[in-house]
């Protein structure tokens, strides 16, 4: 909450919270649009394999498929935790 809102005793209107949440959800959904149906499963299974070796969060993995004319690139991004 912003300081001014706090001092004025205003709470954030629920509609603007809804809007912010939706913008994130929709951006995420659109990122996955047009991908093959197996992608969520693939993502989940890859995550399980990685987790056998490293402790990572559910959202630490990001996978995408880009197709150009004659080849497709499967891109896998995993954020590993800092080493202690």
């Amino acid at each position: 909450m912003k300081l001014l809102e706090f001092l004025k005793g205003e709470r954030k209107k629920s509609a603007s919270v809804a809007k912010e949440r939706l913008q994130i959800i929709v951006a995420h959904q659109r990122g996955h649009r047009g991908q093959p149906d197996y992608m969520p499963m693939l993502e989940q299974e890859l995550l399980e394999v990685i987790r056998r070796y490293v402790k990572v969060d559910q959202d630490a993995i990001n996978i995408s498929l880009d197709s150009e004319d004659d080849c497709s690139v499967l891109e896998l991004n995993v954020t590993l935790p800092n080493r202690d």
Partner: peptide, 18 residues
């Protein structure tokens, strides 16, 4: 005008285009 309805509409837009 409600979050779940807007999210589902976006899913449908995905189906319409694929």
């Amino acid at each position: 005008p409600e979050v779940s309805s807007v999210r589902d509409s976006d899913r449908i837009l995905g189906l319409l285009s694929s």
